[in-house]
């Protein structure tokens, strides 16, 4: 027994002398590697390539890796392209505001006034069900809705509210905005309702017991606590609206060109360098929007 006890520690303490093994210290690297490598290869490199190509020289049907600022000057000098940037920003802000305006009351109702979990789930599922239809088909469904002989005009005329059909409904900036609001408003409702449902009921009771009016409760408790939800919703909506092109091309009759539409056209005509410039502009806009929003709320902590 003694002999064995003397021998084993020497034999077994040798490998452990330099502490825990490689796998124990770096096991998480093996778990992270596939995802990180995937993202670097297929996310970071393509985006970097886009930035790089935006400085290449564009010839009629090809690009050459000779660095130039020509595509950039064309972009900012052109009324059409710079106008598209402004239009994109305008539509984004309008849609963002409207999704918040229309979405918040619904989120308030689902998240705070419905206290039965089952009803809450049913209402949220009801909001998500339209997503089971293809996005593009949902966009196209607005055409028979908004057209001169569309459902809305028929309805309004039938009710005797208007005599003449409203023509500005379809193939205008308005129709693009209506379409986008309907498609993206749910992304605003979901996060806000989620945050509101997390608020403890006793908080409202306490406030009411202290004699706070519903308006004060909303201003002092409900709204501040729902703010992270608003920000997360705003990030979702911004990301999707800024990169949009399908809704615009389906509902504006190609009259409303967003940055996304221009990228699609440029790629279609093999103007890669120019498409890349617009891509970089869009990236910068997006990055600043998200950075500002993330200043307001820490996404990691809210999970």
């Amino acid at each position: 027994m003694d002999g064995a006890a003397v021998e084993t520690p020497i034999a077994s303490s040798v490998p452990s002398r330099d502490g825990p093994g490689f796998f124990q210290r770096h096991g998480h690297l093996l778990l992270l590697a596939p995802g990180v490598i995937w993202m670097i290869l297929f996310l970071v490199i393509p985006l970097a390539m886009m930035v790089y190509v935006s400085f290449w020289t564009q010839t009629t049907f090809a690009i050459k890796p000779d660095l130039t600022l020509k595509s950039w000057t064309t972009f900012f000098a052109s009324e059409t392209y710079f106008g598209a940037l402004l239009r994109t920003l305008r539509i984004w802000l309008t849609v963002l505001f409207l999704t918040f305006l229309f979405g918040y009351p619904t989120a308030l109702y689902i998240g705070q006034f419905v206290r039965n979990k089952t009803v809450q789930t049913i209402l949220l599922v009801a909001c998500v069900i339209p997503f089971w239809t293809s996005f593009l088909i949902r966009v196209l469904a607005w055409r028979p809705m908004l057209g001169k002989e569309g459902a809305i005009n028929i309805l309004l005329q039938g009710l005797g509210i208007i005599d003449q059909p409203i023509e500005v409904l379809l193939f205008t900036e308005l129709s693009v905005i209506i379409g986008m609001v309907q498609i993206y408003v749910v992304f605003m409702v979901g996060p806000i309702a989620f945050m509101l449902a997390r608020i403890d009921d006793s908080l409202f009771e306490a406030a009411r017991d202290l004699g706070a009016s519903p308006m004060t409760i909303f201003r002092k408790i409900t709204f501040p606590l729902s703010l992270p939800g608003v920000v997360v919703g705003a990030i979702f909506v911004s990301v999707m609206v800024l990169g949009e092109f399908a809704t615009a091309s389906a509902l504006s009759g190609r009259k409303v060109n967003l940055l996304g539409n221009i990228i699609v056209t440029q790629v279609g005509s093999l103007k890669w360098a120019f498409a890349a410039v617009i891509g970089v502009v869009l990236t910068v806009v997006m990055a600043s929007v998200i950075t500002v929003l993330l200043r307001v709320v820490n996404l990691r902590r809210e999970l």
Binding site: V239, V264, G279
Partner: peptide, 18 residues
């Protein structure tokens, strides 16, 4: 990782096409 869902599809598509 989260960047993957934040970058608009049209940008990523363009980058990959390039």
């Amino acid at each position: 990782v989260v960047l993957g869902m934040m970058v608009p599809g049209v940008l990523l598509g363009l980058g990959m096409a390039l």
